[in-house]
């Protein structure tokens, strides 16, 4: 055996796990949950709910990019269309909020199947362009269709009563409903990443021809992860429509697709907590620097460039490297 390599052979510490989760992940999730429980008493609830919706959106996107190795540039299509359908279902059909969200999410799922099955036939930049092209089609459909309200969007969406019982109109009540959805969504994505399916996904991301040569039908896995990612993006969008009581063209425009890429890369793609942090930072900037007007976009651009130059792995990615533990 050669000894030409200079890598030090420190074996990875055996991972301590509780309920299939490394302890430090469990700890972070627990801290996060406790913080989010008390947060609405310290910070503006609408802002927090926006962060949570985008955190779920970014986590869904990261599942596709960071673990499936697929860069979609059209995730606004699922986020936005789910937002429209959920708003329409709540306002026009008069459905209860959980059913409205379900309708929106289901729409994103179906859209994911249609667009995904066509897009995964191409790779790399072509894949990204196909997803973008479809997303633009969804955008123009939203602009033209009657029910979306064109430039006005769907406004004054009623939050309604959860299961027809609990009035979630007050922000603080809605907050805990949104917390349950987004936290549950993020945990579900966590489980998907750490499932036998997730393990195959990582293999495909790492080396596609090799995965094929081991007998995996990689296109089926790609489609599956695409649809799952689109569905969770839809869940985020549908929830967001109830938070803001609004579904608009912004949700489905290509800049929304760009924003979720930005959040994911800034936080750290392929990490569990990166997209959540990235979403928090970007939403906080938009919120607290809103007085700078259009300059927020410039600042976002600068932060993104600095981020890519200084820590290509994203903030959480760099921390994970420092402490030598996956985050």
């Amino acid at each position: 055996m050669t000894t030409t390599d200079t890598v030090s052979h420190v074996p990875v510490q055996p991972r301590d796990k509780t309920m299939g989760m490394p302890r430090h992940h469990m700890l972070i999730f627990a801290c996060l949950f406790v913080f989010m429980l008390v947060a609405p008493f310290l910070l503006y609830p609408i802002f927090l709910m926006k962060v949570m919706c985008f955190a779920l959106f970014a986590a869904a996107f990261n599942l596709l990019l960071g673990f499936g190795g697929l860069l979609s540039f059209g995730h606004a299509a699922y986020f936005g269309s789910a937002s429209y359908i959920s708003a329409h279902a709540a306002k026009v059909w008069g459905l209860t909020p959980e059913l409205a969200i379900l309708c929106g999410t289901g729409t994103a799922l179906v859209l994911g199947i249609v667009i995904g099955s066509l897009a995964i036939r191409r790779q790399g930049i072509y894949f990204a362009m196909v997803t973008l092209a479809f997303a633009q089609m969804v955008y123009f459909f939203s602009l033209q269709a009657e029910f979306t309200g064109g430039e006005d969007g769907i406004q004054a969406v009623p939050r309604g009563e959860l299961f027809g019982l609990l009035n979630i109109q007050p922000d603080r009540v809605l907050y805990y409903f949104v917390l349950a959805i987004t936290f549950g969504g993020v945990l579900a994505i966590y489980r998907i990443i750490h499932s036998p399916f997730g393990q195959v996904l990582k293999a495909i991301r790492e080396n596609e021809p090799r995965s094929i040569s081991l007998g995996y039908h990689v296109n089926r896995y790609k489609l599956a992860v695409f649809v799952i990612s689109a569905t969770f993006a839809g869940l985020a969008g549908a929830t967001k429509a109830l938070v803001f009581q609004l579904a608009s063209l912004t949700d489905v425009y290509w800049t929304m697709s760009g924003e979720v890429v930005l959040m994911t890369l800034l936080g750290g793609m392929g990490t569990v907590f990166g997209p959540l942090l990235g979403a928090g930072i970007i939403v906080a900037m938009q919120n607290y620097f809103a007085s700078f007007g259009a300059w927020v976009t410039v600042m976002q651009g600068v932060i993104f460039v600095l981020g890519v130059l200084l820590f290509r792995e994203g903030i959480v990615g760099v921390i994970a490297q420092r402490i030598k533990k996956p985050l």
């Binding site: 796990k17 299939g20 489980r191 998907i192 750490h194 499932s195 036998p196 399916f197 997730g198 393990q199 195959v200 293999a203 995965s211 081991l214 007998g215 995996y216 039908h217 089926r220 896995y221 599956a224 799952i228």
Partner: peptide, 22 residues
């Protein structure tokens, strides 16, 4: 190496299960 052995489970589309089954 486990990725190869995992093939024996058939297609691992079970995204809801913990990877500890591996």
């Amino acid at each position: 190496v486990r990725i190869a052995l995992q093939r024996r489970r058939g297609d691992s589309y079970d995204f809801w299960r913990s990877e500890s089954v591996l």
